[in-house]
Design a binder for these strands. Structure first.
Length: 223
DNA sequence: GACCAGGCACATC
DNA sequence: GATGTGCATGGT
């Protein structure tokens, strides 16, 4: 048993320090961000969230009161804005109908049942659900994303064809089930993931390439 | 101008 | 069950 995940976590945390995630000011803002960031650069999401903040719309009930057209216009910078308008509304509707729009009520619910409920909302897949659970509700679910998959498969630590839940299980099986650890690990992987190029099935100069043999620190660099 | 970004649902075979 | 496609803005 090598516990590569634990080694990667220690290495990145030592080298880069805590990332203080999620970049959002309230649980609801995190939830909104989780939808808006789907297949989108965070930079674009920031502008959309700022628009909502400026309009004082970081409130589930107010967001459901305004028209879809108005909401779409506000979140336009995040891309896929018509699609994300629908997804946001269906998620907010779920929260209001099932939990009275209360973050505390969601936190008090059985976390596995809540996860299944979130996955049943159109537009909420496993990564979005886990992002909401971990970063908005502080429940121990590790978020797996394209960077996680790219990093671990490119180094040969897992097979390229591994799916979301297999990868999630592989990673969590080597870690204590703790919110603080899941929080940092995902944040660190996103940070370093930006330096892994999309194509090459194998890359010799990716950031963590030389981590294992010598335990040597490697600067993140383009590959 | 091409390529990419912290996914997901749906169509088609 | 696997594979392909639409969704869209903004930065490099």
């Amino acid at each position: 048993m090598t516990f590569i995940t634990h080694k990667v976590f220690r290495h990145l945390l030592d080298k880069l320090g805590p990332q203080h995630w999620w970049p959002g000011e309230s649980p609801l803002e995190v939830i909104i961000g989780a939808i808006l960031v789907q297949n989108t650069a965070w930079k674009n999401v920031e502008q959309a969230i700022e628009n909502l903040r400026d309009a004082d719309l970081i409130h589930a009930d107010r967001l459901l009161e305004i028209s879809s057209e108005d909401l779409a216009e506000l979140i336009r910078p995040a891309g896929y804005y018509r699609l994300k308008t629908k997804r946001l509304r269906s998620l907010l509707k779920f929260m209001v109908e099932e939990y009275d729009g209360s973050i505390a009520a969601m936190q008090a619910a059985d976390r596995h049942r809540l996860r299944r409920q979130l996955l049943a909302v159109k537009g909420v897949g496993p990564e979005t659900a886990d992002s909401i659970l971990l970063y908005a509700l502080e429940q121990p679910f590790l978020v797996v994303d394209t960077y996680t998959h790219r990093i671990f498969s490119r180094h040969g630590w897992v097979g390229y064809d591994i799916d979301y839940h297999q990868l999630q299980g592989h990673l969590t099986s080597e870690l204590p089930e703790e919110v603080a650890i899941y929080n940092e690990l995902h944040a660190l992987l996103v940070r370093v993931g930006h330096h892994y190029c999309r194509k090459q099935p194998r890359c010799e100069s990716c950031p963590l390439q030389e981590m294992l043999p010598g335990g040597r620190v490697v600067e993140p660099d383009d590959c």
